[in-house]
Design a protein around this nucleic acid. Structure first.
Lengths: 218, 218
DNA sequence: CTATAGCGATCGATCGACCGATTGATGGAC
DNA sequence: GTCCATCAATCGGTCGATCGATCGCTATAG
C-alpha cells in the first residue's frame, strides 16, 4: 500500500526512511540508533524497512556520501573559478557555514560518524574529507605565500578554521537570535581576522547573553 | 589475586579499567563499546569488571566529571586571578589547548559523549560545560567592552574559539611535526588575531604538507 | 468486461548473536 | 577465619537481519 505517493505534502517512504535515519543518527549517533527506531520514526514496520535499505550501514554510507559531496563538489567549483586566495577563503567559509547551518543534521553525521563505517567505506569517506580539507589548505597556503594571509602555521590554521566553522552545526537554529546571513558574515569576518588579513577592525559588540544553544543534544 | 598492586610499572586494576574504558569510549564511542571489550582491554573477565564499576554509565559519568572538572577548575582559577581580558584569554586558550592535546582521549569523551548520559547526569554535565563556556564568554565580553577585542558578536566568537581549540584533541600526536609548545603558541596567536587584538603580524609560513592526522579515528 | 498473473510494498514472526548485568563458587592474603 | 578479588556460567532483553505470507495495484489475455 504505497499510500499518497502523489501527495506532495508527505514525502515518499524512501525519503521518510532517509530523513528518519538522519535525525536519529544525528541525535543519538549511529551505534546508539536501533533499526526499530528508524522504522518507527519513518512510520513503517521493521520488516518493511528492509525493502528500502540493504543494511543499517548502507543507510549511514549514503548519508555520509551526501554530506561529503555537498561540501567537496561546490568547494572544487569555488577553487577552480576563484583566483584570489582571499576571495576563495571567503567563499569556502560561506559554503561551509551555510551548509553546517542549513543541513546541520547531515553535517553532524558527516563529521562525527566516519568512525562508525567499516574500513573499506571509511577509507572512501576519509579520502573525500581529506580532498575537501586540501582545498582549504591550498588556499591558505597560497594566500600565505602571496602575503595576503599571515598565520603561524598553514596546517594549524586550516584545522582551526575548519573546526570553528563546523561547530555551527551543533548550535544553529533557524529561529535563533541571529539570521543565517548575519552568522555567515560574522564567521567570514572572524576567519579573515584569524588569517591576519589587513583591517581587523570591526565595530565592537559587547552585548552579553541572548541566543539559543545546542539545538541537537541539549 | 590482586597482582602487583605495589608494582609501579603496572597500574592498579581500577586504574586499568578506567583507562580501558577511556580508550574505547574515545575510539568507538560509548554506545559502540561493549562491556566485554572493556574487560578485555583491562585484562580481566567480565565478572571481575563489576567489582570495580556500578554500571557502564557510571564509568562514563566518572570520566565525564573528570574531563569537565579538569577544565572548569583551572579555568575559574585563571579568571579569578587574572585581571586583563587579554591575559585571561591567553591563559584560557593555553589551558584548553594543552588539555585537549595531553588528555586528548578524555577531552574527546567529555566533548562528544554528553548525549550518551541519561537525563539527570546529562543535566549536571551540561551545567558544568555551560559554566566553563561562560568563563570564555565573560572574558570576551569584558575585552570587547574595554576595546581590547573587536569581534562581530561575542557569543559567536566564544563558540568559534572554543570549537577551534577543541579540535586539537582529534589530530594531536605527541610525535607529530610540531611540539605541544609550538601548537599552543600558534593557537594563542590565532585566537588573539581572531579577537582583533592589535598587531596581527606574525612571520608568514607557506610550507605545505607534513605533519600527522587524526590520531584517534583515522 | 472479466480473469489472472505479476509486482512492489507491507506485515508479523522469528533467527542467532550480542548486550548489560547478576550470581555463586573459588582461592589467596592477612 | 574473614575478606577481597577473581572467575565461569548464566540471566532476560535487545540487536541487526531474514523469511514467508498477504495486500493492492496494474498489465494483459481471453
Amino acid at each position: 500500500m504505497p499510500m499518497a505517493t502523489h501527495d506532495p505534502a508527505v514525502a515518499s517512504t524512501a525519503e521518510r526512511v532517509e530523513q528518519a535515519a538522519l535525525r536519529l543518527f544525528a541525535l543519538r549517533g549511529f551505534e546508539g540508533t536501533g533499526i526499530r527506531s528508524i522504522a518507527d520514526e519513518a512510520g513503517i514496520t521493521l520488516g518493511s524497512l528492509y525493502h528500502y535499505i540493504g543494511t543499517k550501514e548502507d543507510l549511514l554510507d549514503r548519508l555520509m556520501q551526501k554530506s561529503m559531496r555537498g561540501l567537496l563538489d561546490p568547494g572544487r567549483e569555488i577553487v577552480e573559478t576563484t583566483e584570489s586566495p582571499r576571495e576563495r577563503i571567503v567563499k569556502l567559509v560561506e559554503l561551509h557555514v551555510r551548509r553546517h547551518a542549513e543541513d546541520n543534521l547531515l553535517s553532524i553525521v558527516g563529521d562525527a560518524e566516519i568512525r562508525s563505517l567499516t574500513p573499506a567505506r571509511r577509507r572512501k569517506a576519509v579520502a573525500l574529507r581529506d580532498a575537501y580539507e586540501a582545498l582549504w589548505e591550498e588556499t591558505i597556503s597560497d594566500g600565505s605565500r602571496r602575503g595576503d594571509f599571515h598565520v603561524p602555521d598553514v596546517k594549524l590554521a586550516t584545522f582551526a578554521l575548519l573546526e570553528m566553522c563546523s561547530g555551527v552545526a551543533y548550535w544553529y537554529s533557524s529561529n535563533g537570535r541571529l539570521s543565517l546571513d548575519a552568522i555567515t558574515k560574522a564567521f567570514v569576518e572572524m576567519a579573515l581576522s584569524l588569517l591576519g588579513v589587513e583591517p581587523p577592525v570591526t565595530q565592537p559588540d559587547a552585548r552579553p547573553g541572548g541566543g539559543r544553544r545546542r539545538g541537537v543534544h541539549p
